[in-house]
């Protein structure tokens, strides 16, 4: 079990108020945005940028950059591992 991925799932559920979603139901490889995934949108992207800044001190200046980073929980975890100054 990947601890960072599990932690991220919980943080996403809380930050985006995904009230009906259980962490186990989120496939780390499935797309978060658009149809076929969790159906997140551009406002959620802004909330995720904030989540990364608050919890991992990662700053994303341009929301357009987020597209590839936030593709899935897995891609987010990879990005955090490569960029975080403090991922405690």
């Amino acid at each position: 079990m990947d601890e960072l991925i599990e932690k991220l799932k919980k943080q996403l559920i809380e930050a985006l108020n995904l009230e009906e979603m259980e962490p186990e139901k989120i496939d780390p490889e499935a797309p978060l945005f658009g149809e076929g995934g969790l159906g997140l949108d551009s406002i959620d992207a802004l909330e995720i940028i904030l989540l990364l800044d608050k919890n991992y001190h990662i700053k994303i200046k341009n929301p357009a950059e987020g597209k590839a980073i936030f593709y899935s929980v897995g891609t987010m975890a990879d990005y955090i591992r490569n960029h975080s100054v403090s991922d405690k």
Binding site: I43, L46, E47, L50, D53, K54
Partner: peptide, 9 residues
């Protein structure tokens, strides 16, 4: 700083 956009919207 670091404000959630949802309540504003």
């Amino acid at each position: 700083s670091m404000l959630n956009p949802s309540p504003f919207m």
